[in-house]
Design a protein around this nucleic acid. Structure first.
Lengths: 353, 353
DNA sequence: TAGTTAAACT
DNA sequence: AGTTTAACTA
């Protein structure tokens, strides 16, 4: 028996709006400590990780851990039927193949319940390494969203460069170029407007704006966003959900094209002479973990079972592999249905447990 | 070297939104006195004229007059990246082929610069006669916009009839007819709601609503709109931009169809028996200027060099030609790329200087 | 996939 | 009324 009650029902609505564009189907993992989800986007380029801790709920009961496969689009549709001030209750029987959403409006005179069929989603549980990052930027979530949206009207990718003084976003497209600089700004009286840079090493990385724009669907969940970057790790874009958890997005950086390589050279310690090969053919011996997993990490996974791999595929795109050493053959998620041409660097498999 | 700074950056955003639907590419003419643009719409039916005087800018520097060809859609895209409260600076080097837009947010912690390639647009400089008009209507810009939008759901054209008491907008379509009358109303306490009629002679003219609806994109720039009409001149729809200039739209009236001819008969002294012919094939000798240029006119151009010609093309549509007598062959703008079927009356060439 | 238009919310 | 978001169309 699983049952939890969330007074601020709009929170769950926003969480689903923040995931449904990126992920079609995913397992919600419920345990006594809370409610979590990890899933790769349908083209296996980005990864979403959600955590809602049990303490954040008004009432939380989970007799035994269960994994509920849901179509996020359908779940979002149902949650859209809840008013923003409604109290949302989610119920599921242990053996059942259904989940029930119950919405109570504030005056308790309207009670709705929606039942949704669960799905059997054969997804590996993705463990995510909690690495140390060379640069961490905290800035207003709305501002980051605005920048990504604006730049995507000029170009397809953004080069994010962090220095002690601030963070610069730049792009280039057919109609011209754009450069946006956000200066470090630790305004004390308005913490939600602060731009905070924690930099150990300057970083310059390029990302596909298409995915960043998907990530910013989480903007209504938090005032601030945290962008954590290291040269050879996927960027982490985190929205902390007050008192209850977070939603995090991971995206592998793109390799610069020749003409942009110079600008990125200092940030990338990668050798430009590295031979190209296909991701699948890449021998394990060539793997070059750049960042050791943090031993202090809160990760549930064992670090010695994780390797982060960066290789180039035939299109000179980056492929990051984070592999369980006991499972050397990457397993494609069977939930994958889309026929996207894989132009993006792929986080091929994040099966870490 | 050209550089100007506009504290109210949203103004430039609105100006571009007000032009981009009508004009693809145009030259911005910058001189020490200000910033101006004249361009015909892509089907050569309507004309836009923009003026932003140097006094309206916080800082204005233009060492020598230059003409910068821009794609208005791309320029609008870039300006959309400016916040509404941003300070906008435009810069261009004299010899350069680029223009730079710089946006500073009010707290100065976010600075963006956008660079856009200039185009070589081979457009004649359009001089526009400043005629006297038989009827001038001033009314709230939002009300005019609403009327044009509403009527365009009924019909394609609007008959605007001005009398001392007010102005009437009427249309007819498959589903019925519509009539909107705005009474003269010089409310003293709310000047922005006034409807003011300056009438020397009653006027009834028909215009394509499609174009008027494009013109009303300028509504956010001004509280009031001025509509100046004479029987055989293009209507002028003017939005004054406070403290800095104006945007004006010109559109030739349509000839009434048979069933509507009666209503317009008094306004048009045209003979219904005039034979039909194609605009281009029409020999010069057949042109019948209907209205002599007003000798009292404030026009800057010499009247004897101007002829206003009204002819019908094969579709029984009006074509107004305002020709310099020294240039008998109408010159198509080379910026013209669209392949619109020229169903609308054309202001063929407005080269009057 | 991008742009535009309509609708809903603030 | 303005702004932001969603849905539809090209």
């Amino acid at each position: 028996m699983l049952e939890f009650r969330l007074v601020q029902g709009s929170l769950l609505k926003k969480v689903l709006e923040a995931m449904k564009d990126l992920v079609n189907d995913a397992n919600f993992d419920c345990s006594s400590t809370g409610f979590s989800l990890q899933a790769m986007d349908s083209s296996h380029v980005a990864l979403v990780s959600l955590l809602l801790r049990s303490e954040g709920f008004e009432h939380y009961r989970c007799d035994r851990s269960i994994s509920m496969g849901m179509n996020l689009n359908n779940m979002a549709k149902m949650l859209r039927c809840a008013g923003n001030d409604d109290i949302v209750t989610l119920k599921a029987d242990d053996g059942g193949d259904c989940v029930t959403f119950m919405f109570e409006n504030p005056s308790q005179d309207k009670i709705a319940d929606f039942e949704m069929k669960l799905m059997d989603i054969d997804s590996e549980h993705l463990g995510i390494p909690d690495a140390e990052y060379q640069s961490i930027v905290r800035m207003p979530a709305a501002e980051f969203a605005r920048i990504c949206k604006d730049l995507s009207s000029i170009g397809d990718t953004v080069l994010i460069s962090v220095s002690k003084e601030g963070v610069q976003f730049s792009t280039r497209g057919d109609i011209g170029t754009a450069n946006i600089v956000c200066r470090r700004n630790t305004t004390v009286d308005k913490p939600e407007e602060a731009v905070i840079i924690e930099m150990e090493e300057p970083v310059s990385l390029t990302f596909a704006l298409r995915y960043l724009n998907s990530f910013t669907k989480a903007t209504p969940l938090a005032n601030q966003v945290t962008i954590s970057m290291s040269s050879d790790l996927p960027v982490v874009v985190e929205y902390r959900i007050e008192d209850i958890g977070y939603i995090r997005y991971y995206l592998a950086p793109k390799i610069e094209e020749e003409d942009e390589a110079a600008a990125a050279a200092e940030a990338f310690s990668r050798t430009e002479t590295e031979p190209k090969h296909t991701a699948k053919a890449k021998p394990k011996a060539d793997l070059k973990p750049k960042v050791e997993p943090n031993p202090e990490s809160e990760m549930k996974i064992k670090e010695d079972k994780v390797s982060i791999t960066e290789i180039k595929d035939e299109d000179n795109k980056t492929v990051l592999e984070i592999n369980d050493e006991e499972k050397n053959s990457p397993v494609e998620s069977k939930a994958e249905e889309e026929t996207n041409t894989p132009k993006e660097p792929k986080i091929e498999t994040m099966e870490l447990e």
